[in-house]
Write a protein that binds this DNA or RNA. Structure first.
Lengths: 345, 345
DNA sequence: CGTCAATTTGAACGCGTGTAAAAAACGGGA
DNA sequence: TCCCGTTTTTTACACGCGTTCAAATTGACG
């Protein structure tokens, strides 16, 4: 026997004999209503089918209790891990998260940001596409809504609040490690079309120079579909190995997915990255993709503190929302990476 | 010079000299307004900053133009691939997608479904947690909103509209292939706590029996945290290999992530799955996880047609929304899997 | 210039709930 | 029992836009 469906608070009010304003307060926060009355309401509620209309409740409220989050890709465990951290933290803070994915399309990204404005979200976390992102969209967003850039910061938005990894430090770790335990690394870059991997690249160069080595970057010339990092890494290294190049070098990859492609190329050419431990071919990644330990050989990499970045981003956003008066100062928080030494380097 | 911000249609109307009802019609569908007027509105719009309030627009509309989608995990490329397919199809159909993730928590799942009701979505696609899912929540949802189960169907919801993979067929393919090219496979199951992998398991059993072989299932007794498939596959196989068991068997894994763990265990024990091509140790997965080609050895598997499942699910949902009068008949569409023979088996 | 059809406008109401202010009911203590 | 402070109820307005409908305007055409 299905319970009778009740569509409006008005009807509810009539059905259980409690005034509508009291019901309204009850749904927002039961502690605003006397225990006695709460019990009466809950008893009534158990007998009917009623769900307050989401739109109506937010229409005339100062705070919607929602934050918007947008990420560039879905098919990447890096972003989903970050997203998971964000969602969990936000949920604990009592916020509803509105997740969007731009699918690597600046137009979709812009539309999503506009959507956040239209929905009056309390704040927004933006993991941007990168330099292709529409700067004006973001400007429009942050002029109305407390916002934070996460993970990646386009060159055109350097004056904006931001939480991410300290690439100088994390790539520095990688370069230093590779140099210490073997030969100085060649840098396998991301596809050029792609978003600002420049942070990693610049960090590589400066660390190499600091240590007195000549930086060498490969893979910038290869065109590749966006997001197909493994294919990129594979094709670049396959080509090199085919002519006997780089077969005893240290290869530092822009990220783990590129490294996964490189690993495959190596194994196809009968090479065993990391086999000599202190020299020969070695392949290292960056990010600590969840599958790293399960690759053969397992992938040495630098772990990004996605957990920390995600939760810190949410907390900072909450602060911005609750006033904390735009102190005027730009917020920039960079998290250090941690070396994860495994078999491949 | 920032454009003046306009907050309501009323103000907009005054600002650009077009009546509010006309503006309303313009925002819903510009073709409802004369070209001449459209131009005038657009010109005015370019000079100000205005975004129609999302809540207000949906409050008094019959259709919200939104569909809700919920998936159980984020950190799984299988689900993100499915989600991507769904989002793309929905976007093409002009629908706004509301994505939620239950993070493997039935309570979150139930809340999300209630949220869909509260937001008056036109329809909902539910990729359930599995047998842990709260059946009543889903019943409440589908009693109010056109809904469809996708990918997995809990035993408690067998009478419900559903789109997914034909596991009988896809696992049949795998079993048949393994038997044809080598010895009959042992089935490496998912962690028991987990959601209904039973489809795969049952399909394995029935195909084995059909071919006259004795089914053998391992890995059911191992307890494991949810979602850590690789660790599960690894620990089960590591244990077996350690006592010299299964080292020359065909192993059919419940899914690719389990297989990835199994592959790692093999390599750690100096075993090379698939090396003998037609016998010896072979490992096969199911799903065609995007990384399969990049593993060493690359993973033989059965590809699920996620693209097809996702877009079909959206299209069916759209049909249900647009009436198509509940024909009364239950909708069940099963997609065939396709063999992807690689190195590991 | 007149006519008819197509558009736009004004005015008003509705959507379901938030919110504020004042009046009424309640509850506990002297 | 009376008084006072707390809680609930009444009442009324607000939120921003969808929608309707009659009245006014526009536009193309003859």
């Amino acid at each position: 026997m299905p319970k009778p469906r009740i569509n409006t608070m008005e009807e509810l009010s009539a059905a259980i004999g409690v005034s509508r304003p009291t019901l309204s307060r009850f749904f927002q926060d039961p502690t605003l209503v006397k225990a006695n009355t709460v019990a009466r309401i809950e008893k009534g509620l158990a007998q009917v089918e009623y769900v307050p209309n989401f739109f109506a409740t937010r229409l005339n409220r100062k705070s919607t209790g929602m934050i918007g989050v947008i990420i560039p890709y879905l098919n990447d465990l890096f972003f989903t891990k970050l997203l998971e951290s964000i969602e969990r933290t936000a949920m604990d803070a009592g916020l509803t998260v509105l997740t969007k994915c731009s699918h690597s399309d600046p137009v979709i990204e812009a539309k999503a940001l506009e959507g956040f404005i239209a929905m009056n979200v309390d704040g927004a976390l933006v993991v941007p596409l990168g330099n292709q992102s529409d700067v004006r969209s973001y400007e429009r967003l942050r002029s109305r809504i407390p916002s934070l850039l996460v993970d990646s910061r386009p060159d055109t938005m350097l004056d904006v609040d931001y939480v991410g990894t300290n690439h100088q430090q994390s790539m520095g770790l990688a370069v230093e490690y590779l140099c210490r335990v073997g030969g100085p690394p060649v840098f396998l870059a991301m596809p050029p079309v792609n978003f600002n991997a420049l942070g990693n690249e610049r960090a590589y160069i400066s660390k190499m120079e600091e240590l007195g080595f000549e930086p060498r970057i490969i893979g910038r010339e290869h065109l590749n579909d966006q997001g197909h990092y493994e294919a990129h890494g594979h094709s670049v290294m396959d080509q090199a190995f085919s002519i006997g190049d780089l077969t005893d070098q240290s290869i530092l990859c822009a990220n783990d997915r590129v490294a996964i492609g490189a690993l495959k190329a190596a194994s196809q050419h009968g090479l065993e990255p990391g086999a000599l431990r202190k020299g020969g071919l070695r392949i290292m990644g960056h990010d600590d993709y969840p599958l790293c330990p399960y690759l053969t050989p397992s992938l040495t990499t630098v772990e990004q503190n996605l957990q920390g970045i995600g939760s810190r981003a949410v907390n900072l956003l909450v602060n911005k929302i609750h006033g904390e008066k735009n102190s005027g100062d730009q917020i920039v928080e960079l998290f250090d990476g941690a070396l994860q030494v495994r078999e491949s380097a």
